[in-house]
Design a binder for these strands. Structure first.
Lengths: 217, 217
DNA sequence: CGGTTAATTGAACGCATTCAACACGAGTGG
DNA sequence: CCACTCGTGTTGAATGCGTTCAATTAACCG
């Protein structure tokens, strides 16, 4: 198959091979400590990143200090793929991280290789899809549905039914467009309804999948 | 400048030349009557579209009937650029429309032309940007701010200060994640505060830009 | 341990929703 | 020209969901 645009292929959240290779071969390995900024909002867009280990979150701050979390990125995910000349989001390490970084100019220098073109577009399109889902979540869902949907998506990507939450409640809240209190209350209520259980603060198990799916809708 | 990826160029909402050309030369001209569906949610992604005249909206329906408007597309805008194999949104003509359509396979056949590769990526990235802004709007803004922001963006793209609203209140509501009543009330309040005025139902003038900007924040 | 941060819980408030009534305009037919 | 209707927008009153502010508890780490 020799598609120039991957208008037909749609796999999981793993970037396609060509870009991964470039990052692996030409990228720098970066160790980033928890809560350290990787790039800042308003920074010039200069690099491409891939999570090798740990979790990264992107956030956006309004002038009056309200925070919106853009997304969370897990090992294998590309990030920093922003449209503009300047970053709209900042990226921070949620946990201690290993990150692969490559200058965009390097990617550009290799451009024209069909596979690589495809890979950048592919990654961008995947990003678009994630953001579109986020829009639906924010626009038309109740707190209960938002939280349920969030837990669902986590449970899906970790195939184990002993899911760990890498992020704190505040990050969940800022991702879901809620307050930390509402998230907390909603979680306890979901436990009360025996839909999930939290043996630890940052680890949960789904006890009634159907009920959770219904809510996540 | 021989960029393969337009990592550096960032203009307005107009698609870059190569794609426009393909659509103009190889696309079919479609006349679509108001409120007619152009493609449906769940349809296979098969075409690329460009608005020649009129306004198009994309919407998404949850299983239980809640509606989220994805975006509005104006003359010159590309749409139908969705990541998945199936459409997540449906597209409908908001007004009577003229739309240019081209099969993606045609675009694919022409792929490899550097300019065209660039154009598809460019368009996708622009789309991403729009959606990201939408996320911030939905996640962290009050009704007043949402409506103000929406009016602002309309006023910006029509350089006249006699802006026309192509969409009804319900569409605004579903775009902003509000109810029609809240939109209506908010509009009257904005008028009461002498920030905008509505000589007609679907036409407004900004009377106090600073105040509107403050709100849109 | 104490000290600190993160998470939970409670009570009161407020913004947006809900449900219902009303206004307005456009189109139709008497 | 008016009466009628239908769609769309506005307005009102009551409700409720999520927020806010404050206090408490739980987890973490020296």
């Amino acid at each position: 198959m020799t598609l120039a645009y991957s208008l037909d292929s749609h796999d999981a959240a793993v970037p396609s091979q060509a870009l991964v290779e470039v990052l692996d071969r030409l990228g720098s390995r970066l160790n980033v400590a928890k809560d350290t900024e990787i790039y800042a909002q308003e920074d010039e867009v200069e690099f491409l990143y891939r999570v090798a280990d740990g979790v990264v979150r992107t956030t956006r701050l309004t002038c009056d200090g309200r925070r919106q979390v853009g997304d969370f990125y897990y090992p294998g995910d590309l990030f920093g793929l922003e449209p503009g000349p300047d970053h709209q989001f900042s990226a921070e390490a949620l946990t201690d991280c290993k990150v692969l970084v490559v200058r965009r100019s390097v990617v550009r220098a290799l451009a024209g290789e069909r596979e690589l073109d495809r890979a950048v577009l592919e990654a961008t399109r995947r990003e678009l899809q994630r953001v579109q889902d986020h829009v639906l979540l924010l626009g038309r869902k109740s707190a209960r549905e938002k939280v349920a949907g969030f837990l669902m998506s986590l449970a899906h990507q970790q195939h184990d039914n002993n899911v760990q939450l890498p992020m704190g409640r505040q990050d969940m809240a800022d991702y879901l467009g809620l307050t930390i209190e509402t998230v907390s209350r909603t979680l306890t209520r979901l436990q009360g309804d025996a839909i999930v259980e939290f043996p630890e603060l940052r680890r949960f198990r789904v006890t009634r999948w159907e009920a959770l799916e219904d809510l996540a809708a």
